[in-house]
């Protein structure tokens, strides 16, 4: 219980940073387009966690406390919209390449 009692904003920030880095690595290494999309969700949620933690009463008592949560809500809506566009784009890519392996996206260079 002592551990739970000392949770501060920096703990949330650390988890957020881990999520962010994991997501970025996932985007850099995954070959499957859907895997990359999952990486994006992780990255966005890492940022979201930051917003909620910074907006919480743990950091400052005097704030209205809604800005951070509001931003997090907007980001969740945005991530849903992006997922919808992503599926259309991945489907189009599949129709042209017969695969969603984005390593195959190497025709254009010069």
């Amino acid at each position: 219980m002592a551990l739970l009692g000392t949770v501060t904003v920096s703990h949330y920030l650390a988890v957020g940073a881990v999520l962010f880095v994991t997501g970025a690595l996932c985007m850099a290494t995954k070959r499957n387009a859907l895997g990359v999309l999952m990486g994006i969700e992780l990255v966005l949620n890492g940022a979201n966690l930051n917003f909620v933690a910074f907006g919480s009463e743990l950091l400052r008592k005097d704030n209205l406390g809604l800005d951070g949560s509001l931003m997090a809500l907007f980001v969740i809506v945005l991530a849903a919209g992006e997922a919808a566009v992503a599926l259309a784009i991945a489907l189009n890519f599949y129709n042209n390449h017969m695969s969603i392996d984005i390593d195959q996206a190497d025709d254009l260079k010069g």
Binding site: I40, I89, F93, N95, N96, H97, L108
Partner: peptide, 21 residues
Amino acid sequence: RNRASSEATVKYFFLSLLASA
């Protein structure tokens, strides 16, 4: 809707999302 265009879209989409993040 050809091969090159779908590749361009995928590249722009994922990199732009990373930038937004």
